[in-house]
Design a protein around this nucleic acid. Structure first.
Lengths: 216, 216
DNA sequence: TAAGTTTTTTAGACTTGTCTAAAAATACAA
DNA sequence: TTGTATTTTTAGACAAGTCTAAAAAACTTA
């Protein structure tokens, strides 16, 4: 249906446009580790195929078709991640690159049966919601710890940074999905956040607090 | 490691050389539905990478490295086919094209864990043996029904033709893997084979008898 | 608003894998 | 063994996707 490269562009554009609305050539180039000139070439092709709205120098957005394709890639990626962790016992910091390959397996029937096989999971191992077979899924229902007031708390439910460095750090601190935490204090000097978890206190940096998401 | 195209060439060469020893350019072209000139180009590349032994006009064979890569692709293909049938409930005539994509997922760790997850199956849904993680597997331990004497029999254990037309025909006749059959008679006029199965008689053509494999 | 900076696009070239058409090598047959 | 047919290779071209270098457009800021 679509080439591997086209799929990767659509996914990148989707992810960037969730954060920032219209997406620039340079943003796409950075996110795909390629050059702006290569991006321009590809944008023309995607526009020809009616997958993006593009006018020179204006940045791009996805068309309805383009968004459908992108969400479908994300569905496939997250279902495979879930499979790798829940069925094959990989750790949450090991699965990204494998899922990056597997998300391009094209059969819809396959992915729908995989979904069923695993009991229609709502979230992948990093807490990201998995779109259903119609492409519906909730977005943005989690908040970074840095955004909630002192003395409130919730359940760790996701991460914003998916790097294995970050995930391994969390693992070590036992700051894993499902844990209950409360914000005890924010140290004004450097914005260190003091958490209470399992009746112990834990200091995390502003950066970590920004990238760790909770459900209230 | 290797491109998708390289992997497909190695697999094709492997399958052809199991049947016929040294493999010709035209055979490869036919099996990959491409042109002889394209094959020649690719053969030079594969030879440069020491994956095949190749001298102009002489046909090719795989090097040890090339064979290792090919067997590994076959391992991946057959494990994914097993997964699709046993875990996702696909039928044996539906899985080939999906596995054709999935066999190119590169992680060895992934495939070894998949193997373990499924309990180290010995054969795929078509009865083909699955190489273990060292590339070892039995070959040629099954015989076509057309090759055994009248009044002998065995258990249906594999197929030579993997086309969905053939597999669907077998399904309809209930000539599926595990069934016990005995050859009652071979009608000399057209070599029709009369089988006994489940206390009933069943007529199959010479062609079918050639493509249906049994363990004695 | 004019000058300088940054972003984006264009132009031209390279790689991989493919093709067609033609040439070279090999195989076959009388 | 000589001529014909077949197989294989070469030559040159094309599409997809990438790159560098240079030009064009858009911002920024004084």
């Amino acid at each position: 249906m679509y080439t591997l490269t086209e799929e990767n562009y659509l996914k990148a554009i989707y992810k960037l446009s969730v954060q920032t609305g219209n997406v620039s050539t340079n943003q796409i180039a950075a996110s795909l580790a390629t050059k702006a000139s290569s991006v321009t070439d590809m944008l023309r092709k995607l526009a020809d195929k009616l997958l993006i709205n593009y006018t020179r120098y204006q940045g791009v957005s996805l068309t309805q078709t383009g968004e459908k394709v992108a969400v479908n890639i994300i569905r496939r990626h997250r279902l495979w991640e879930y499979f790798l962790v829940e069925k094959l016992n990989f750790k949450w910091d090991e699965v990204h690159d494998m899922a990056e390959e597997m998300e391009h397996i094209s059969s819809t029937e396959l992915i729908d049966r995989l979904d069923e096989f695993m009991g229609f999971p709502a979230r992948d191992p990093h807490g990201d919601p998995i779109p259903d077979c119609n492409g519906n899924f909730k977005i943005n229902d989690l908040k970074p710890i840095s955004a909630i007031p002192v003395h409130s708390g919730g359940v760790i439910s996701g991460v914003r940074d998916h790097s294995s460095a970050f995930l391994q750090y969390l693992e070590k601190q036992e700051l894993t999905i499902g844990k209950k935490i409360t914000v005890k204090e924010i140290i004004s000097y450097d914005n260190t956040v003091v958490l209470q978890m399992d009746n112990k206190n834990l200091h995390i940096s502003r950066d970590v607090a920004n990238n760790l998401l909770i459900a209230l």
